[in-house]
C-alpha cells in the first residue's frame, strides 16, 4: 500500500509543472475576467447590458480574483513573477471598483 502511494505521489510530482508555469496558468483566468469586466463595462455604458448584469459579472470576477490572490500567496513561483501578478491583480481589482462606483 505504502509503495503504491509513493509511486502515485512520484507520478503526480513528475507530471506537475514548475511553480512558475503553474501560477501563469492559474493567472489566465484573472486576465480573462479583467477583460470581461472591461468589455462588459463598455457595453453597459453603451446601454447594451443592464446594471444588474454588470453587478453579477463583477461579483463573479471578484470571486475569481480572491481565489487568484490566495494561489499567489501559496505559490512557490519566483518572487518577481508573484509581485508582477499582484500588481496586475490590484489593477484589475481597481478597475472593477471604479465600475462598481459608477454603478451606484
Amino acid at each position: 500500500m505504502r509503495r503504491f502511494l509513493s509511486a502515485a505521489l512520484l507520478l503526480a510530482a513528475c507530471s506537475r509543472k514548475s511553480p512558475d508555469e503553474q501560477l501563469i496558468k492559474q493567472f489566465d483566468s484573472v486576465k480573462s475576467w479583467s477583460a470581461t469586466v472591461q468589455f462588459a463595462g463598455e457595453k453597459w455604458r453603451a446601454n447594451s447590458v443592464p446594471a444588474f448584469f454588470m453587478r453579477a459579472t463583477i461579483a463573479a470576477a471578484e470571486k475569481d480574483y480572491d481565489a487568484a490572490a490566495r494561489s499567489i500567496d501559496q505559490s512557490r513561483a519566483r518572487k518577481e513573477l508573484r509581485d508582477q501578478f499582484r500588481r496586475e491583480l490590484d489593477a484589475a481589482r481597481a478597475s472593477a471598483q471604479r465600475l462598481k462606483h459608477e454603478l451606484r
Binding site: D28, S29, K31, S32, A35, T36, Q38, F39, A40, K43, S48, V49, F53, A56, T57, A60, D64
Partner: peptide, 17 residues
C-alpha cells in the same frame, strides 16, 4: 481577441452585443 475565456455563462452572454 479580447482574451475573454468562457469559464462562466456571464462571459458568453456578451457575445451578441
Amino acid at each position: 481577441p479580447r482574451g475573454i475565456k468562457v469559464s462562466d455563462y456571464h462571459q458568453a452572454a456578451l457575445m451578441l452585443t
